[in-house]
Design a protein around this nucleic acid. Structure first.
Length: 565
RNA sequence: UACCCGGUGGUGUAAUUGGCAACACAACUGGUUUUGGUCCAGUCAUUCGAGGUUCGAGUCCUCGCCGGGUAGCCA
């Protein structure tokens, strides 16, 4: 769309150059090519935002293509969840494609390569292939079957396809160069014999193409111009181009690599995610502590926040790790604008206003969202007995404390200012049980008639009609910033944070009772919460913390404590 | 070091292609505020190192140093 604008990254820069040089007649086509062997995670979202974003920026096309060349690992369940996640993120593909749709074409091209002397049937076992391949510093050796005649290769390949040989007994290999310094070019396997029911082609095939033999060809069939992939495929690019060249395609797709996303304090590899799920450390693929898109959706992340996160982190070839705070910032930023505010007390302490009439319930007006003037106001019952948060009271207040303390005055948000008169403590344990206060009737609606400044403002709920609701508090799953690198002698599970899921309850203002599953709120001074979609029932919400609010006081206090010790 | 890729603040990404190192996050300082939230202002890098070309180098050249990837019939 904005071809005139500045490129956001090196890939857009390349495409702008390609367009101006007339490559592919200025056409831009990309694709998102997941293997349906797991659920999508935030790392995939980077590729999704990149590819679909490119298509819309350059008025091109972006297909969703499932790279389903290995029936051993792939399932329809994953095909479905991947589509759901992409749509949830806010993108729609031009065409829904499957590599398996091209199996006939791949086969015909393989026959063509055999005919050209560019591929041969090899009888070596997997282990023998590895031995013959050589090492990083030593060249490989030719397979003893490398020089079979074209006719023999054609005959054997037909037999392979016809199911005449057992699994793994033969492969079709490209005939390139066993001494190549690029190990990937040492006669890579194109087809393996594999009897496994494919989720789309059933038992039609007993030979399946490898990634290298399928990917570039799939790109070419669809008319992809720019084939983006992650850095670990850089080594494969010569092979990608070799196959395209041997097939004889002109103006084919070009592969460009970029660094995949890494996030601190989380794991992204499918292997690690699977371990967490299968070993029961989390509740499933959509556990809200996981970076899977289904997990983040359940956690309360919005598609907008993920997209803006992706815009912020950029695209490059450098292998980097994004700090978790960047992600948190993006969801806070969006929720700040759209989430209605409510009040809830997590760690209740009774506050009694001694000079407030016993039977009075005064309705006070509370703003629903100061960032959104459309969101209106609501009424809150203010009364003699309230609950406040225990963390907002200190018997011996530290420096710069602005909240409740003996003799201190604070404002109860949207209500009146109160001054602590007496602190009732348990005679044996000394535990604070109740705060006896007096209020100033002249301080309604944020007023202070004498103009005095009341710095502290705390949240509260009415004791008579608040409701206790279950709440889950999530925190990072891992204690180390880089859990994808497990130290020697340790396991992934050793790096898990013990309290990443805390189940508790909160005393909530009455309106929260009607929250619907999926509703998001800011609980003032605490954080953003969502009524969990699995755990909530109509009329009985079960909340979960999406992300805490920034807390500069906690930071300051921690700093003071650190400098003292 | 067999080949490939990369190196710009604490973390990421930019820099009109050789012309004042910018933006975001983090951190810190102050201001505003009926959320210690939000918002606003300010502080925080001479670009891995050494040479070279040039009026001028993050950008070009040379030599180093450091990091990542590749030896699946996974993708």
């Amino acid at each position: 769309m904005q071809e005139q604008g500045k490129p956001d990254n090196f890939i857009e820069k390349n495409i702008i150059e390609d367009i101006s040089s007339g490559l592919n007649k200025g056409r831009v086509q990309v694709r998102f090519p997941p293997q349906p062997n797991g659920y999508l995670h935030i790392g995939h979202a980077k590729a999704i935002c990149l590819n679909f974003g490119l298509a819309s920026r350059f008025e091109g096309h972006c297909n969703l293509r499932f790279d389903d060349t290995n029936p051993l690992r792939e399932k329809q369940e994953y095909v479905d969840s991947i589509q759901e996640d992409i749509r949830w993120l806010g993108f729609e593909w031009d065409q829904l494609c499957f590599a398996s749709d091209y199996f006939d074409q791949f086969h015909d091209w393989a026959v063509q390569l055999i005919g050209q002397g560019d591929a041969y049937v090899c009888d070596l076992t997997a282990e023998e292939v590895r031995e013959y391949r050589g090492g990083l510093k030593e060249p490989g050796r030719d397979s003893p079957h490398r020089d079979r005649t074209i006719e023999e290769n054609l005959r054997l390949f037909a037999l392979m396809k016809g199911g005449e040989f057992p699994d793994g007994s033969k492969t079709l290999r490209a005939r390139i160069d066993m001494a190549s310094p690029h190990i990937i070019m040492r006669d890579p396997v194109m087809y393996r014999i594999l009897r496994s029911t494919h989720h789309r082609t059933g038992d039609d095939w007993c030979i399946y193409p490898t990634y290298d033999w399928a990917h570039g060809q799939g790109d070419a069939i669809e008319g992809v111009t720019h084939s983006l992939c992650s850095l670990e495929f850089t080594n494969h690019r010569p092979l990608y181009e070799w196959f395209l060249d041997k097939i004889g395609l002109e103006d084919g797709p070009r592969q460009t690599e970029f660094a995949r996303l890494a996030l601190s304090y989380t794991v992204m590899s499918k292997r690690s995610l699977r371990t967490l799920i299968e070993d029961g450390h989390v509740e499933g693929w959509d556990d809200p502590r996981l970076p899977t898109l289904s997990g983040m959706r359940r956690r309360g992340y919005t598609p907008e926040s993920i997209r803006s996160f992706m815009n912020g982190i950029g695209v490059a070839k450098f292998n980097s790790t994004i700090e978790y705070s960047v992600l948190e910032n993006s969801i806070r930023d969006h929720l700040n604008k759209i989430a209605p505010r409510r009040m809830a007390v997590f760690n209740p302490l009774k506050l009694v206003i001694e000079n407030f009439p016993e039977d009075l319930q005064e309705m006070v007006e509370a703003v629903n969202n100061p960032e959104d003037s459309e969101s209106g106001t609501r009424q809150l019952p203010f009364e003699r007995e309230l609950w406040v948060d225990r963390d907002d009271f200190r018997l011996e207040p530290p420096r710069k404390w602005r909240r409740l303390a003996p003799g201190a005055e604070v404002r109860l948000r949207y209500g009146y200012c109160v001054t602590v008169q007496d602190v009732i403590q348990n005679s044996e344990t000394g535990e604070v049980e109740e705060l006896r206060c007096v209020y100033d009737p002249e301080t309604a609606r944020g007023q202070t008639p004498d103009g005095r400044k009341v710095r502290g403002i705390i949240h509260w709920v009415p004791a008579s009609c608040c409701i206790e609701l279950p709440v889950r508090l999530y925190s990072p799953l891992f204690v180390v910033p880089d859990p994808d690198h497990v130290p020697e002698g340790k396991q992934l599970a050793d790096l898990l944070a013990p309290g990443s899921l805390e189940e508790t309850t909160a005393l909530c203002e009455p309106s929260l009772q009607e929250a619907n599953p999926g509703d998001r709120f800011q609980l003032e001074r605490v954080g953003y919460f969502i009524a969990d979609q699995h755990l909530s029932c109509p009329g009985a919400p079960h909340f979960a913390r999406i992300v805490p609010l920034r807390d500069s006081w906690a930071k300051q206090e921690k700093r003071q404590a650190d400098s003292r010790s």
